[in-house]
Nucleic acid binder design. Structure first.
Length: 566
RNA sequence: GCGCCUGUAGUUUAGCCGGAUAAAAUGUGGGAUUCCGAUUCCCAAGACCGCAGGUUCGAAUCCUGUCAGGCGUACCA
């Protein structure tokens, strides 16, 4: 039985209002004591020409007694509904038991294709803490869309093309030493890259030389191509090590280079449609009517630019996947760039470009400065993850010296803690990096949720020989139990909200609140201890089981793993 | 200069398609556990929601102005 639907159905027949009006008006009261659902009667005042409290009072009297709704109350201009707790509890617990990890899943997506482009690090540069924002958000969104029945492709749009490679090749030719690089690839490449920028400031001719190398690369010169390939290979080894730690997988690693031979067509199409104009020697699409700077398609030297590549990529993706949504999880600083290329695609008459969406996020800053690869001001992601794992290990050893599989557990908990901090607030907020806050496991954190799960599992292990599959849920109607059950029921809504706004933090907040309610529940409602009667014990075990299922599922959507004990 | 975003308890944030006492965490001060594992739970203090106007029965939420900060503003990505 759908409790909300039951309330709405009755309100529709009682008031004679449009179903949609009622659906939009019905809300969850700010305080549980006020009820489970509320109907504000204010909008009815004008139509019915009566004071809201009076309307509420009349409706309360007319509302059918019994069934899913145990009690209806008038409170000021509000009509408050209280569900039948036992009925509700049985409904939720049975639902979760039947659905398992699929609880909260829906067919909203109907198999439609959603592309999520995320992570997208630059080859030959360190995978730093800033990249985790895109990686964590993108990975989570991919899982959330899957949960909602979409067919998802995870795309890693590697930064493996562009003038920067001219710079790197130039730097390598001058100061590179293959043997040194083999030992610590990314660090050494970063060193010569930083040196390049330092030297280029003194000698601008270096920039010219770098552009020359990139031109050679674009023209397919053998030696430079071999170098480029070498940089890419050693970089991917490093990146994959981090992705393995994070449990992140991609369906495609087609980066910018992949689209390098697909840009001519884009240029031709835009030219044919009469969209290209010359400006200061460059070929651009004028966007002044949209109050935007022009979008450069070909630089004055005839070379392509990232806008060209992104448009080529979008066209390729449309042809390859016929996507419903094409999501770019890329930082806010590139907001204008995406607005521009989306505008160009629209002008080109590509209706499908409506499905393109830039999901932006804030900056990860170092205290007092921005992170800058050029200046070498970076914090390596791998270092942060390892530090977090070490800290977790120390905590476990202190609390529980005999714990098994400490290494594996520390990894899941330590990495979960880092992921959590990137997924706990709305995306657009900047994150100021500090070891202290990054390694803070107190309060709202992944370890808090993981601990709740582990405790729940521990209790279930103790109850291994009890069959609670036929639990009488009318034994589980305390406030704590009821609160918990309502939250379990709301899982699907949290996932939908997260997808609707492309904000994983809705799931994060959901699972944290669920864990909190569970902690309170088992602190106030004994399960396996004391003289709890058998029927109550079964009902509480059934709830505990359901909670564990949902915590695990929700954490999975965030890319965070669970442990059976910690 | 112009565009976009942000400004809510000491700190980090939620709430922002208007509604019932502005919600959490952390920090601070107190308390619970003869322990289903204390990485737990409970209580308290703490906010003129940047500022000023306006719309409305009602504004943290919408509009206007203003101040502060961030990002962007054509041949890097």
């Amino acid at each position: 039985m759908d409790f909300k639907k039951y309330v709405i159905d009755n309100l529709v027949s009682l008031t004679g209002l449009e179903r949609e009006t009622i659906e939009n008006a019905v809300e969850v009261p700010p305080d549980e004591k006020m009820g489970d659902l509320a109907f504000p009667c204010f909008p009815l005042a004008k139509v019915m020409r009566k004071a809201p409290p009076l309307i509420a009072k009349e409706l309360a009297e007319k509302f059918p007694a019994g069934g899913a709704v145990a009690k209806v109350e008038q409170a000021g201009g509000y009509l408050n509904f209280f569900f039948d707790r036992a009925l509700f509890a049985a409904e939720v617990v049975d639902g979760i038991k039947a659905a398992g990890a699929d609880w909260g899943r829906s067919d909203l997506g109907g198999g439609r294709k959603v592309l999520v482009e995320y992570s997208s690090p630059n080859i030959a540069k360190p995978f730093h803490i800033g990249h985790l924002f895109s990686t964590a958000v993108g990975n989570s969104l991919a899982r959330i869309y899957k949960h909602l029945g979409y067919s998802v492709e995870s795309l890693n749009h590697l930064g493996d093309w562009g003038t920067q490679f001219g710079k790197l090749i130039c730097a390598y030719k001058r100061w590179g030493d293959r043997e040194v690089i083999e030992k610590d690839p990314i660090n050494e490449l970063l060193k010569i890259y930083v040196k390049f920028h330092e030297e280029a400031e003194k000698d601008p001719a270096l920039d010219e030389e770098a552009r020359g190398y990139f031109k050679k690369l674009e023209d397919g010169d053998e030696e430079t191509t071999a170098l480029w390939k070498y940089f890419k290979d050693i970089s991917l080894v490093e990146f994959n090590r981090v992705y393995d730690m994070l449990g992140v997988r991609f369906d495609s690693y087609n980066g910018e280079a992949f689209y390098s031979d697909k840009m001519d067509e884009v240029v031709e199409i835009l030219r044919d449609k009469g969209l290209l104009t010359e400006s200061d020697g460059a070929q651009v699409v004028d966007l002044s009517e949209l109050n935007m700077p022009p979008c450069i398609i070909l630089k004055s030297d005839g070379a392509t630019i990232y806008a060209t590549r992104d448009i080529a990529a979008a066209l390729y993706r449309h042809r390859t996947y016929d996507f419903y949504k094409n999501i770019y999880v890329v930082g806010t600083p590139q907001a204008l760039h995406f607005k521009q290329i989306f505008a160009v695609m629209k002008k080109a008459g590509w209706d499908w470009s409506e499905g393109c969406e830039h999901v932006n996020f804030g900056l990860v800053k170092l205290p007092g400065k921005s992170m800058s690869t050029r200046h070498g001001d970076v914090v390596f992601l791998e270092d942060v993850l390892n530090e977090s794992i070490e800290k977790t290990k120390a905590i476990i050893k202190e609390n529980n010296p005999d714990m098994e599989d400490i290494d594996e557990k520390s990894k899941k908990i330590g990495i979960g803690a880092i992921l959590y901090t990137f997924l706990k607030n709305s995306r657009e907020k900047d994150i100021v990096f500090s070891w202290e806050s990054m390694l803070d496991f107190e309060g709202e954190s992944a370890p808090y949720c993981q601990y709740s799960y582990a405790r729940g599992r521990s209790i279930l292990r103790r109850a291994a020989d009890i069959d609670y599959s036929d639990a009488d849920m009318s034994k589980a109607v305390s406030d704590e139990e009821y609160t918990l059950l309502k939250q379990l029921n709301a899982y699907g809504d949290a996932v939908k909200d997260a997808a609707e706004r492309n904000e994983p933090f809705y799931v994060n907040r959901y699972v944290t609140n669920l864990a909190k309610s569970f902690n309170k529940f088992y602190n106030t409602n004994p399960i396996m201890k004391g003289d709890v009667d058998e029927e109550t014990k079964k009902a509480r075990l059934a709830i505990t089981d359901a909670v564990c299922t949902v915590i695990k599922s929700a954490l999975y959507l965030l890319g965070i793993e669970t442990v059976e004990s910690m």
